[in-house]
Design a protein around this nucleic acid. Structure first.
Lengths: 216, 216
DNA sequence: GTCTATACGGGGATAGAC
DNA sequence: GTCTATCCCCGTATAGAC
């Protein structure tokens, strides 16, 4: 793992991997150095201390999600299509950064989001807000049922793929794939399922008018 | 925290609390002893070592969930009512054992369920299986839509309350309650919401109309 | 910028007294 | 059953050579 042209980035990558895999506390400076292919003392040249390095890792990971989300989720979409895209974005982002779900979850349960409060506030003001607005718009036009709280509905929507990432070993056992988790194909299909599930929950129960034969 | 009549149980309680709060690695034998109000060396009298203690903690926690679930979820229920009860059970169990969600999640992401494989297999064969059967029964009677995979639908159903427990600090920020998480009342209402959401997703779109007005 | 060497504290585990 | 005392390893962080 030494092909890093830039030591700083190599350290950041190694730290992200290990923080995600073993958690902040259990990850040693020495292990990060080995993984990055540099000397342990060098970490203290680029970062103030272990916490500072951790903070930089979180900044980059959350920042990446937010930037990507803002770029991909234009707000003038059909509500159904927008909900689908949110879930697709989740699945694709986690697919390309397989260690980040654990990184995020660990920050939540280890530190109560203390190191990510700023990024989460930004996430709340951008992606989460946009998902809520999309749901509200669907409700306003009558496409979505109005008896659901948009915020809670947004959380339910997002929870499916998020939970899959966290509970993968348990889900693997549940579906007979063992503790290594379900196969990649199963996971991909789960994203489609999650979108169908959420949309089925969101859609208004029946086309209110008797004569309106809505096909899609 | 010394009202424990039995030292062993007191140690188990203290260990569960700290393993859930800080994780296996970051929890020290000495801290457990302090929390339990006993001497550190005493832990080695009741348990072989730190791992053995951890294993006993997991055994008790998972076992409790399974026993309770088996007791409360009789299989001859109306499918809709059964789905509601599953979510209610989740919420009530986590309400009464607030540290166990973190304990479970940590075992999943820290050890890939290695210390809980047996209990999870049992959980798969009892509670999870029963939820799948309930969904299948709903599909067979036409109450539930047939285009959903029962296993995935079961996971989506369960994910909502589970994810709330894990992502509480983030969700708190999202809904404007801050990183301490949403208020207890909000959390209670979320369980109701989750049941409505899941049932709305599961229910067949329209009561099999004579004119076959399928909105797909 | 990158390395070697080391100070320093903390945690798991055991011996053995009571 | 419960405690005191202690061994030994390991991890963070710094000093300072190159």
């Amino acid at each position: 793992m030494h092909p890093s042209p830039d030591s700083r980035t190599g350290i950041l990558d190694a730290a992200e991997l290990l923080f995600a895999r073993r958690g902040f506390r259990s990850t040693t400076i020495k292990a990060i150095a080995v993984e990055a292919g540099v000397n342990a003392a060098l970490l203290y040249y680029y970062f103030p201390d272990k916490q500072g390095l951790y903070h930089a890792v979180l900044e980059r990971a959350f920042g990446g999600l937010i930037e990507e989300g803002i770029g991909r989720l234009t707000s003038d979409l059909d509500p159904e299509e927008a909900v689908r895209r949110f879930i697709t974005l989740q699945a694709s982002y986690f697919g390309r950064h397989p260690n980040r779900p654990h990184l995020f979850v660990r920050e939540l349960i280890d530190h109560g989001a203390a190191h990510a409060a700023g990024q989460l506030t930004r996430l709340a003001a951008t992606l989460f807000r946009r998902l809520c607005e999309v749901i509200e718009r669907g409700q306003a036009t009558g496409r979505f049922r109005r008896d659901l709280d948009p915020q809670r509905a947004a959380i339910s929507t997002v929870s499916q793929v998020a939970w899959l990432q966290v509970a993968r070993p348990a889900i693997g056992i549940f579906v007979g794939a063992g503790p290594a988790g379900p196969a990649a194909e199963w996971t991909d299909q789960f994203a489609d399922h999650a979108a169908s599930f959420a949309l089925a929950a969101l859609r208004a129960p029946a086309p209110v008018t008797p004569r309106s034969t809505r096909t899609r």
